[in-house]
Simulated scan of single mutants.
Amino acid sequence: MEPFSFQRVEGGPDLFRICGWESRIPGLSVGFTSRLGGVSQESFASLNCGLHVADDPDSVVANRRRVAEEIGIPLEGWVFGEQVHGKRVAVITAQDAGRGAFNRSSALPEADAFITREPRLVLAALFADCVPLFFADPVTGVIGLAHAGWKGTALAIAAETVAAMVNHFGVQPENLLAAIGPSIGSCCYEVDNRVIDEIDRVLDLSASDKDNGERFPYYQKTIAGKYDLDLQQVNRQIMIKAGIMPSSIELSRYCTSCSTDLFYSHRKEKGITGRMMAWIGKAVHA
């Protein structure tokens, strides 16, 4: 069952929300934007949320405000980082509210993952094929969000995020809920040996592990000698190794490259495109 429910908003941003989490954890707001329902034009039409592309910054901020208003947490409480495809996990406090929300200069430097227990804060990250990773602990109230392209995946950013939640807040990994959001699928993501070598390393795969048959979930070799890589399955395995229960990990089946009517895709659109925004935070009324 698809965990991300599409919600069309009349006159506003069309969003994908993890309704199961929102109904289970009081005050939680969590989801992923589509490319629909904003004010950006041309290649960035219409709900581009990325300030680092060549879109009009005022349009980007207007789009972010639309999303913030829809979920009920003002943009002044949102936190963004300058994503570098690394593995740094930033611990977010109330003093970080608004960083990166209105301009890139105030964003958290070199941060591809965030965790917090603070109310009235929203963790946000930007995507256009990379894998969004969501974390929530119903016991302690700690939440997390990570940006995992192939480099971040190979650096085990999912495991780094879990470890930070354990070390800073005493989270028990077996209590965590995790979700892997819309991203480029193995149907559209062909990579070379350099990438596969890094994936093998992070998964600690031996030759005997890889029969390249239908039972091998991570990648398949193509006729051209490259590989169709499933980053979602790789991140799921990293989460399991980090202690999250397999039954607590939900995967979206949306491929951003296959569905450019709904999503931006860096690969499909040859780099000239906007960015979706993943978010997780506690609503004002919580």
Rank of each mutant, 00 (worst) to 15 (best):
T93R: 13
G12V: 08
Y227N: 06
V89Q: 08
A90S: 15
R17P: 07
L203M: 07
S43T: 14
P26Q: 14
E190K: 06
P57F: 12
K268L: 14
T140V: 04
G141P: 07
E69D: 13
L28V: 05
R194P: 04
M276D: 00
W21I: 06
G185E: 06
S34H: 03
P217M: 08
I184V: 13
E198T: 14
R120A: 08
K87G: 15
A156S: 14
D96N: 09
L155E: 13
A128V: 01
L177K: 12
Q233M: 09
M245I: 15
E174G: 07
L75C: 08
F4V: 13
Q95W: 09
S252D: 04
A179R: 11
L251I: 02
S186K: 05
V139L: 01
D96I: 01
N193M: 11
L47F: 00
L176W: 01
V122D: 07
K282N: 15
G12R: 00
D192N: 00
R120N: 13
G271H: 03
R99T: 07
R253K: 14
M239Q: 00
Y218N: 01
C49G: 03
F216W: 12
A125K: 05
L75R: 11
I223G: 03
T140C: 02
F102I: 09
A125D: 10
R24P: 10
G98E: 05
G31V: 11
A111C: 15
L121M: 05
E160G: 07
G144D: 02
S259W: 02
A283Q: 11
I180D: 08
N212S: 14
V84I: 11
M239S: 11
E160N: 06
F134C: 06
V30H: 02
I238F: 06
E2Q: 11
A90R: 13
Q83G: 03
A178K: 02
A283F: 05
T161I: 07
A178M: 03
I157Q: 10
A164L: 10
F127V: 09
D58M: 03
W150V: 10
V53S: 03
G98I: 07
H266N: 11
